[in-house]
Design a protein around this nucleic acid. Sequence first.
DNA 1: TTCGTGATAGAG
DNA 2: TCTATCACGAAG
Length: 192
Amino acid sequence: MAHEIIRAPFFQRDPIACARGLVGTELIWGRCSGVIVETEAYNAVNDEACHTFLRPSTRAFVEHNKAGAAYIYLNYGMHWMLNVLVKGEANGFVLIRALEPKTGIEQMKKRRGIDDEKRLCSGPGKLTQALEITDRHHEMDLCADPRHCFVRSANAIVDVVADVRIGISRSAHYPWRFTLRGSKFVSVPVRL
DNA sequence: TTCGTGATAGAG
DNA sequence: TCTATCACGAAG
């Protein structure tokens, strides 16, 4: 089965298409990897939950970086969030929210301090802890280095569910959370 | 349900 | 300087 690195043109569309398209792809991070089972889209325009709405520094980030760049920030003083810059038909971000661990599982368990594989990467803060993603990866090009990239299997068929986003107060009604149907590795089960 | 933790930005 | 807010997670 052919695997290919996702290249920059993938991220030169709009955040919603990119967020949906990333579900089912594999995130490679050093010796660890996992299949992305949950993402969210944030739109730089008309989306009050996107950092660009309130933060000048985020607007500058969009201006000065290319599609596929990592946007990483600290939330609640302790959790790193991994996002990918989308810059094309529309600008915005894809938040990587959950993975199904595939390789380097023992290392992930050690970093997380737990054994349960379903909970290793079942949340945006958990997966950055499991993969040791921090602000030193901020602005990294995620379409160039084969050790930090997204890989997809050719011919893969992925059944994606759209739902409302989680943990935000503004623009909370947009159905811009995407999960792999039936996955046991998501952060919060899909709303019925 | 509650609380820890720190960056960011706007108001005063 | 001060305050509010925050795309979370673990424990209770």
